[in-house]
Amino acid sequence: MEIHWHWLIVIYLFLGGLGSGAYLTSFAAEKGWLGKNSSLARAGYYLSGPLVAIGTSLLVLDLGQGFHQPWLLIRLILNVQSVMTWGVYILSAFIIVGVIKGYAVFKHIKIPAALTWAGTVLALATGTYSGLLLSVVDAVPFWNSPVMPFLFVVSGLSTGLSATCLLAPLVEKGSINEGREGQVHLGVVGLELIIATIFFGTMLMGINGPIGVESAKIVLIGRYAIVFWGYFVGLGLIIPLIVYLLQFIKARKESKLHLTQIDFSNTEQAAASENGHHSYLNKFTDVAVLIAGLALRALILFSALPLWDGVSIL
């Protein structure tokens, strides 16, 4: 099996998803979808542009001519038929909008809502692109699945949400406000579980032919089984599902309790217990989600068997 794209591309795809998810997290927080006065309304914007820019520079490092003849890179915008060229447009635009939005939020400068919305669309496009780049390759059955872009978008959302939660306490002065991020993350991870099951399930069932099955087997029961079950499923799906689910149940019970007791003096205590999302357990969960996101990209790239190995004839 020949692998042409290695860790630099794994990290590039990972950071693309992460930056996209981070932007969307802060956008959701800004819109109030993560609860009132969410503390996540800025950190994600700070992360988005710079992280995608770092990812893109890693991609340039991987190019055979990145250093030899860097002026050739201007040609990357030429082939409008190429998904990679679409990526150049999307990522360049997203980096610019992400950096502007991050700077504006930092400096408390008001920017047009249209620009923020453009960033949201570009964030979704960035996440989608990182999967689409692979899913259009007919000669690699494992990649050639229409589910791939969805898997990458939702995994990017999860990692983006985690990275934003990790950064928020460092950039927000004063107390951190616990919102609905735990609940939202529970939903995102649940969705990721469903999409990943569809992706690996259909692949294993042979929807993309015997080579697709072989690739899926490498991941599920073969060479990378430990990475898959331990890092991706364990760290990225099971742990966050359990942690967020338990916190969700606990929070509901408590809020019910307070409602029945109508005990207004206890609200402070309730707020303290709801601060769970920024506890050490949550920090651990967020780091686990990030490792899982990286593992997913590595699994997808390193298990890509070509339709034909280029050597065997029957």
Binding site: H4, W5, D62, G64, Q65, R75, P306, L307, W308, G310
Partner: peptide, 27 residues
């Protein structure tokens, strides 16, 4: 002389016709 060495073609060609040289960094 136009190739940037992204190696995308190595994946998309079902016949392994494009060849990458680590030495020159191009196809």
């Amino acid at each position: 002389d136009k190739c940037v060495g992204c190696k995308y073609c190595l994946y998309v060609c079902p016949y392994h016709a494009p060849q990458f040289s680590e030495h020159t960094g191009r196809i």
